[in-house]
Each structure stands twice: as C-alpha cells, then as structure tokens.
Nucleic acid binder design. Structure first.
Lengths: 219, 219
DNA sequence: GTGTATATCTCGGGG
DNA sequence: CCCCGAGGTATACAC
C-alpha cells in the first residue's frame, strides 16, 4: 500500500463527472491497483475512488487512472508532502455475527416465536421474483410467508407484498398470508403492512439466541 | 490525519459483533476523530470503522474507540511499523455533475421530451409520504406524476405507485397517471410499471444536455 | 431529532 | 455476464 499526502486537484469522469478543487489530501494506492482519495473527515467514504482493476500512469505532476469501463480519474499534484510504501500482505478477512442470515436461521428453528402453532415448510422458498425467507403453515394448516429484516422499513413490506401476490396465484398454497419479522419495525412500515393485512412481529435477537443456548444445554 | 501501519487484531461490538484476526493493516484517524481500518485491497470500504464523534483511548498496545451509542472498537496492536501525522486542513468538497438531481433539472425544463404536450406544474411536489419528482399536466390538462431515476429499477415503480395512490385521493388532481423516467429501465421494472398502467420513458441524458447547449447558443 | 431517498453506492451470491 | 438483495450501509435533505 502506497500512502501519499499531497496538495492536489482531482477530476473524475465515468458514471458521472466530478471535480475536486485544490487541497491537501491522502492518496491511497492499494496492492490490487485500486485508488482512493480521502479528506480529513468522514471515516467511510472516499472523496473519489477507482476500483480495481485499473491502470495508473504516473506522469510529472499528474496521475491518470483508467479502468476497463472507460472511467478516468485524473489527479493533478501540486505539492507532495509525504510518500511511503508499505507491505501489508493478505488479510484474513472479517468475521461477522448478528446479521440477517443468522436471524433467519434462528427463526427457521423457532417459527413459533413469531406466532403460536407456526411450523416451517422451507427456508428460501423460491418464487419467480426471488426467494421468500420462510414459508410456514399455521395451526390451521394455512400457508404463511415470512419476510425477515434486521430493521423493518418500508422496502421490506413492498418485497413481502410482491411475494404474497405471486404465492397467492398458486392453487396449492392459496390463501397465503404474510408475517413481517424484524428486530425493530418502523412506524410507517407497520402502518403500510397492517393496511395490507400483514402481521408485524418484532423479534428479540438475544432471546432467540437464549433459546439456542438453552437447547445446547440439554446435551 | 494520523496514519499508522501496524500488525493488529480488531474487535467491533455494536450493531453486530465482528473480529479481525492478526494482520498488517492501515489505521486511519481523521481530524474529526473518526477511525477507519483498511486492508491492502478494495478502494471503497474499510474493514472496520467508527464514525465521529467518538472517544479514542490509547493504552499500551491497545486502542479502544467508543461512540455515544455504546459501540466499541478495540484494536490490539502487536507491532507498529509506521506512524505519521499530517495536517490537511478543510476540504472544499466534491462537485458532481450527472446525477439524478441534474437529470431532474433537465427534465423539468424539457418535460415534452417525456411525452408530447407535457408541461411542468412543479418540481418536488409534496405529498404526505414524500415529494414527487415532477408534477405535470398533459395535453388534455390531466395530472401526470413523474418519477425520475438514473437507473430504473423496481423500487422506483413502487415509490411512484405509492405517490399515485396518495395523489389520486386529491379531488383537485384526480385522475393522476404516472410516468417512470430513467436512462435505462430494467425489464422487471418495466413489466411491473406497465402492469400498473405506468408509462415508461427512457431518456437520453446526453441528448437532453444537447438541448441545453442549443438553448444557450441562442444567446 | 426522525424519516425518506440517493449512491460513481459496495459487496456477495445465484443463475 | 447480469440480476437481486443486504449493508454496522453512509450521506444529504426535508419536516
């Protein structure tokens, strides 16, 4: 990884065009050839960037980075204040815990936490517009489609509505009702869901994990 | 901006928990107090980060960053290979051209490019669930709501549908029909839109810019 | 502050 | 390759 601190101006042309007026910034060139330009604020987003693979041509006072797709990043250097190269090696990568996939696993094993009598038919039940997170049957044997989100926003209601519309075309499943499950459901999403007869279930991730640990204790 | 290259392992606890095994990485501490950890690949996204504001406590061989919301990032340092501090100053910021806002400006000035006889009533027409990009009247004087996207995907159709549903409650506007405008409209979005009687218009951004330059040439 | 929409989204998975 | 969905999304803007 090469780190350069320089006074520079930058022009990007690709999906859009953009310009950065002259200022001192960090230029980061990584081992895979990608380039990022950072200001001294905002942890996440670079001001400009070019994803690998691309070609960096270093001229006198000017770097030109071009990608396969015809994007161009032009960095005009006025003053280089620091320039260092560092060997980092491969990164073992990030281990995550607590995302939607895990929530789905937990609910697949404990559908009764969503509603009494609910039992799983299958996870990732396919429809022609994508898979439904859980397909279940309720105590009366009727089909229930479950959409699971970490945060219940309006998009998830739309998604579940589209699935329900498709599933209800299937005479073997019909009638299918919906359950929207999330750790937190936003008020507007709840209103829209209930307008459409979709039941909203807020689930407690830690409590579900508790059920798992209790189950493990039995062995 | 402080740049540290170090062999380290990292633990994050907050919205989720994550762990990074020991490796050499870049630690970036910016002027606003935010922290980002980068591997030697991938221009855009840090492996871990903490947005400002937060508190960085530097102990022997360990950094602990805590945020107001109870998030914690713990960096265990095994070996520091580089440590430098740089004065960057304020950044003038990025000027963009060619995003949705600009497309909306151009279409607001040339609604007839969407459909003959269309004229603008107002941009960002407010509804109780958010603003419609353009509200127009057609050649027959009937109301038309226009949703503009750079890329026409299914979300935009849902968004326009929600607006139309609200607008059609207003006796002064009713009946209101919809136009979905984008540089490219994905097949699935087109199918859904047309199912709902929404007209799809693919617009040529460069041609619209051409109209602008032509207009300028008259002066 | 919350809520909503955008993003050069990025990133990963499946066909 | 494209399509789709998730993200500790981040970021900007309106109310």
């Amino acid at each position: 990884m090469r780190l350069v601190i320089a006074r520079c101006s930058v022009d990007y042309s690709g999906a859009l065009t953009s310009h950065l007026a002259s200022a001192v910034r960090l230029l980061m060139v990584k081992a895979d050839g990608c380039v990022a330009i950072h200001a001294d604020g905002g942890a996440y987003k670079p001001l400009n960037w070019m994803n690998a693979p691309n070609l960096l041509v270093e001229e006198e006072g000017r770097w030109v980075v071009t990608s396969r797709k015809g994007e161009t990043l032009t960095i005009t250097l006025e003053e280089v204040l620091h320039d260092s190269l560092h060997e980092l090696g491969e990164d073992p990568g990030l281990n995550k815990d607590g995302v939607e996939a895990h929530l789905q696993e937990l609910l697949a094993e404990h559908p009764e936490e969503l509603q009494d009598g609910l039992r799983l038919v299958r996870r990732e039940y396919p429809t022609d517009i994508g898979p439904v997170d859980l397909l279940c049957r309720d105590a009366d044997g009727e089909a229930v489609a479950v959409e699971i989100k970490r945060r219940g926003e309006i998009d998830g209601v739309e998604q579940l509505t589209r699935y329900l519309e498709r599933l209800n075309r299937d005479p073997l499943l019909r009638p299918v009702r919906g359950i929207y499950a999330a750790q937190v459901i936003k008020p507007q999403a709840r209103v829209l869901a209930e307008e459409r007869g979709i039941y909203c279930a807020e689930v407690d991730y830690d409590a579900l994990r508790g059920l798992e640990s209790d189950a493990l204790k039995l062995f």
